[in-house]
Design a binder for these strands. Structure first.
Lengths: 225, 225
DNA sequence: GTCTGTGAAAACATTCACAGCG
DNA sequence: CGCTGTGAATGTTTTCACAGAC
């Protein structure tokens, strides 16, 4: 059914970022018991062109059947393998304030194979406390605990003023993937991947369109402009 | 100092999305008392090329001084105007579970001019309760309350199974910008803007690079491949 | 000399369109 | 006949490189 590409060259980051989107839709389809999906129908569901879906998948192999489409369970499994989601990933949260605690107890991570295994904070009042069965450690203990716990992903949940320091510390401990909740742009060496989670930034770019809504409406009514 | 563009044509969405990133850096610079910043230095701070910053800004006018750079306070003010952040935006949260409550009490929204003015849920046990001084209403009250409260942004914080229904309802009430926290792709007419906030999706695309980390390391050491 | 603003060039991403398979 | 996989064409975004302002 599939033949892995001989040499998987350079795959664009935009493509990698769409794979989890495909996964979510496939999970839903699998839950509904749909055995097969075409790029056309998947595209309808996600508002993505069918050609894009086919081209994205073709970077990794041939997963479909002509005339039929893609086997939902099989494709889901293959994408999981491509993304390395066929095993558990261990994460550390730095910053156990209001936000850090909310993240620590979010059930969505565990459900998808992401496990929080270590908590860090620098507030002496918190160090030694237990949260969800995990002890809160001082950030100075990171160099010991992070390798020992097999942590490969760091979650930054400290105030903006502390974020870059924490990123540098995590990177120096060998962490190469960071989920940054601090409302600031942090930088790291190019070998380190960073994804920012900032709802305010998301809102701030939407208001541009709200402001120009009249123009948008006119455009929708008369696309000849 | 600036001359607004005569006809601001079609500005790419990628550009709009970078403006809040520039804003955050400028806010930080303003707080530090830096009067002026060059595209080179701003680019260093954000890991963005200076040419990109200059080109982005040039879509909207001429904000810099040759030989000097950009006046931090002035540029910040101009970007705020461009994005429509010179006044308050009123938002409604749909879904007052664990996540919705965390969002409702997040101080970062208010600090940037985004105010939660209405809460909705369909759980009869919650309707009528008060949270942060706001009454929780039934979703069936949305058509009355949303126009009355001047809500233009909707925050979706319901389970995946409810998300599309809630989106449709919000859109039918005239909301044209949505912040979606549900772990599912929702669709809306092209006049409606949607931004997804899903940390799991962010993680799932980083694991690809973690899996291929060896290759990445080799590439960094010997870029001739 | 420094740094902006911007056409032109290069790189990158999406869509088209169709041969070929089931 | 329906749908995939994919080169070729098109569209978009980034980068280059330099004239001109301070």
């Amino acid at each position: 059914m599939s033949r892995p590409k001989a040499a998987v060259g350079h795959i664009p980051d935009v493509v990698i970022r769409r794979l989890p989107i495909y996964m979510r839709a496939l999970e839903q389809l699998a839950a509904q018991g749909a055995p097969v999906i075409s790029s056309l129908d998947l595209g309808r569901q996600l508002a993505i062109t069918p050609a894009q879906i086919r081209k994205d998948l073709s970077f990794f192999g041939e997963f479909g059947k002509q005339g039929a489409g893609y086997d939902v369970t099989y494709l889901l499994h293959e994408i999981r393998k491509i993304l390395g989601l066929d095993h558990e990933w261990r994460m550390a949260i730095v910053g156990v304030g209001r936000l850090g605690r909310a993240i620590a107890s979010y059930p969505g991570f565990t459900a998808q194979g992401f496990r929080v295994v270590a908590l860090f904070d620098d507030d002496p009042a918190k160090i030694g406390d237990t949260l969800d069965g995990l002890t809160i450690h001082a950030t100075s203990d990171m160099p010991q605990i992070i390798p020992a716990e097999g942590v490969t992903i760091g979650i930054v949940a400290v105030p903006a003023s502390q974020a870059q320091r924490v990123v540098d510390l995590l990177v120096s401990c060998g962490v190469t993937a960071l989920l940054n909740y601090a409302p600031i742009s942090v930088t790291a060496p190019p070998t380190v991947r960073i994804r920012d989670v900032d709802p305010v930034v998301a809102l701030q770019s939407m208001t541009y369109y709200l402001k120009h809504y009249d123009r948008l409406l006119a455009l929708a009514a008369n696309p000849s402009d």
